[in-house]
Design a protein around this nucleic acid. Sequence first.
RNA 1: GCCCUUGUAGUUCAAUGGAUAGAACAGCGCACUCCUAACGCGCCGAUUCAGGUUCGACUCCUGACGAGGGCACCA
Length: 564
Amino acid sequence: MQDAIKQWVKEILGTDADFAVEYPAVLEHGDYAVNIAMVEAKKEGKNTRELAESYKEKLDANLLPDIEKIEVAGPGFINIFLKKEFFGKTVGEILEKRGEYGKNKTLNKKISYEYTNTNVLKPMHIGHLMGNVIGESLSRIAEWNGADVLRNTYQGDVGLHIAKTIWGLQQLEGIKDSGNLSADVTYVGEAYAKGAAAYEDDELAQAEIKEINKKVYDGTDTEIEKLKDWAKDVSLRHFRELYKILGTTFDDEMFESEVAEDALTIVNEYKEKGIFEESDDAIVFNGKKYDEALHTRVFVTSQGVPTYEAKDIAHALRKYKKYHFDESLIITANEQDEYFKVVLTALAHINPEIAEKTTHISHGMLKLTTGKMSSRTGNIITGEALLEQSFAGVQEKIQEEKEGLVSTDDVQNIGVAAIKYTILKQAPGRDIIFDFEKSLSFEGDSGPYLQYTAVRTKAIKEKAKTEGVSHNVERSESFGAQTIERMLHRFPEVVKRAHTELAPQAITTYLIELASAFNTFYGAEKIVDKDDVNSPYKLALTEAVGQVVRNGLYLLGIKTPEKM
RNA sequence: GCCCUUGUAGUUCAAUGGAUAGAACAGCGCACUCCUAACGCGCCGAUUCAGGUUCGACUCCUGACGAGGGCACCA
């Protein structure tokens, strides 16, 4: 509709100016607002309102069939009001398309989303959980816009953190198969904390760990390889458990160890070509040469080991060779912003095409009000702990009010929804101030509120069934619920915008407004009522709201419970 | 010190350069013989400060002040 209106205005007014067809902030201003008069008045030095009036006359003479009327308002907006029957059509369309409503097929691209780049042998902390939540939502939004999405994760299985953990395992009890995954995970975490602390405080241990790191890279020491393989398997099984709870299935799990050798080759090759240079026995990329704001970073250490930087370059080349994506998005915490600027600049000098297609998206840090976290001291909030905290909160709520109503799966679904919503409701890139009490909210502006709304629509539908009322999309002239109808109609365009702006929060904001409008309606009107001639349409509207809320929740990576 | 990001109700967040800055939580008041109250209704309350650009600025530019992050052998 938005495109149709734009096209229509262009044709009737014979303009190719760059104007906008947008949603007015207030519903009284109609369904669409066109700012063409402001744009043209500036160019031609005319009075904005007068120009808008003259446009209105021309447009009035050639109204599109779905348009009820147009008005000039405010500083010179041309507001467009759609016919009421149009909204009946929207409700009908939603009930016909169901889980497909909101999909746009316009994006014909292969896009790689790389997220949850964990380090194996280290706990998955809440930063990784954030990245997972955002990456999954962006992936789903892209799919709904027609993209062929490749979900992938790139995990650190070589490097100092591995050496630290192996050192720690050697100090502790080595391989310890307790048969209990969660106990093994804790044990590996302890080994990491021990190694990391020793690396900082004990020079002898530091030398030993560096020695282990070399062997991790060359893979010659069978004892070290055994420890590594065991601990890596523990980590990966644990991560996959968490991915499952979170609702992500990766198409490809890639590892740093797979590109370590290539990384050395590439850096050496481009050192010959002058991209990298030697400095204090290390091989570095001198960012300052290309941009004053860039840092100089080490790509190969004086020990001859490739750093994350070099591996990231090799990884990018390898990934492109494997998948030939049109776009590649890498999602990490914003503490890596400047790191990525340097790496992408270096990549641009090695393979401009891939660099051009790659975008680094960052999310903020999850700041706990209880203080800073550190994985070094072991004093961290793991992703798992956060999930469990949320599940416990849901359980508590249920015991107070709804014992026996909610299934175990749905307790998880609600707990995940509370966390995901908190993360997705704000623009990615900014820190989240996380307070366990307040942030894991089940009321108001929250994931569970949306779930509750969807469940409510379902309960109403069941009630209607027992009462013998069935839905009908024919809307009577006297009936009024334009707020909800207009909002339902906007959903596909919100999905589109969420992708172009990489903004999951566009979905959360929209859903809260829709749910809130519906709940107000629910409070004011009896929906299932055999004596009310409007009841069948109200029911159709209710089902349409339920469907759109479900579809929106899907895009956030949130499941709708059966009952709650 | 240099660089990047950022400053919106008491608090946590929204707002493609557009019309009356939108929610939630907290606070105060109301509502429950009716489809699940994780609900609904009302009130209170905000663009850090000083300039500039623009018909129009939370949004763009400059400066001040505050917050977070990054600055070579970690990832």
